[in-house]
């Protein structure tokens, strides 16, 4: 069965929740007009990225009616969208929600908050502690949501693939640097390699939506992509510019890919767990039973 996914590569306005809700709704409308069943918006699409101490001013709860209303006028439309979430116990998280028909279908709190180089996320937001998949029903199936830096840790994509993800969705706000240097837009090359690899090794299609626009001196590079389960590129958005691109996936491709390349079925999870347990213990200076050496 074929279904269509829209990647809404928008330029959110910093700390302007109302404007960004409008941008999101507009993107969903355009996606619906092109028969998409899933619209992916970028990381922090409702708030903008370089918030610093504005975090509490733009944070909303995951049951906020404004969040759940996104895509409400497009019946059946799934929307993945990034926002600053305030939890019940007042943690502020860089989260991505999956909403449909006014319901929250899934929620992912960014697990890896980059706090190095030009990034300072760990100072202003708290990390999530779950890597899950969420069942969106046919045709999309189970969705593994992640946020930007989460994808720089192969474990996140691989855990979700092993957890039955039929589609990986990564929402991002990637700032560009070193254009044309010997590093050659290094971050973009890295992103593409990693996406190709996750789709290929996870035998899973992958939707990546990266924002564009400028905040302070940062320029976000866009280049959103949809990959099929064999790692091939279905559609790719331009660099730098706002765009809404739509691509088609075929659920049968996933079935056949996994028959022909049964990597997930062959994965030796218990072996991996044993080795992980050993590494965890050794890093902590414990023996494998958890006792101090």
């Amino acid at each position: 069965m074929e279904y269509r996914i829209a990647l809404a590569q928008v330029a959110p306005r910093l700390a302007d929740l109302d404007a960004n809700l409008g941008i999101a709704s507009d993107a969903v409308r355009r996606a619906a007009a092109q028969s998409a069943v899933l619209t992916v918006l970028p990381e922090l699409a409702l708030s903008g990225y370089l918030l610093q101490d504005l975090v509490p001013e733009v944070a909303i709860r995951s049951d906020d009616p404004r969040l759940l209303a996104i895509g409400r006028d497009a019946p059946g439309m799934l929307v993945a969208v990034g926002f600053v979430e305030e939890t019940d116990d007042h943690r502020y998280c860089n989260s991505a929600a999956l909403v449909r028909d006014g319901q929250l279908i899934g929620l992912h709190r960014k697990v890896y908050l980059p706090t190095y180089g030009l990034f300072d996320e760990g100072r202003f937001t708290r990390p999530g502690d779950r890597i899950r998949t969420h069942d969106a029903g046919p045709p999309v199936g189970r969705i593994g949501l992640s946020v930007c830096e989460d994808f720089w840790h192969a474990s996140v994509a691989m855990v979700q693939a092993l957890d039955g993800a039929d589609l990986l969705v990564n929402v991002a706000a990637g700032p560009s640097r070193a254009p044309g240097s010997s590093a050659g837009l290094a971050a973009i090359d890295g992103w593409h390699k990693m996406q190709d690899t996750y789709a290929l090794l996870g035998t899973v299609p992958l939707a990546f939506c990266n924002r564009v626009g400028n905040e302070e001196g940062l320029t976000f590079w866009g280049g959103s992509r949809l990959l099929a389960a064999d790692g091939s590129t279905v559609v790719q958005a331009p660099l730098w510019e706002e765009a809404l691109v739509v691509g088609t996936l075929e659920t049968d491709d996933l079935r056949m890919q996994r028959y022909g390349l049964p990597l997930l079925a062959d994965e030796r999870l218990e072996l991996v767990r044993r080795e992980l347990d050993r590494i965890i213990a050794e890093r902590a200076g414990l023996d494998a039973d958890g006792d101090s050496e």
Binding site: P179, G180, S181, S182, G213, N214, G217, T219, W240
Partner: peptide
């Protein structure tokens, strides 16, 4: 090194 066209595009956007 620099790729001038990309740098110009980024700076103009900035």
């Amino acid at each position: 090194a620099i790729e001038p066209a990309q740098a110009v595009e980024v700076i103009i956007g900035f």
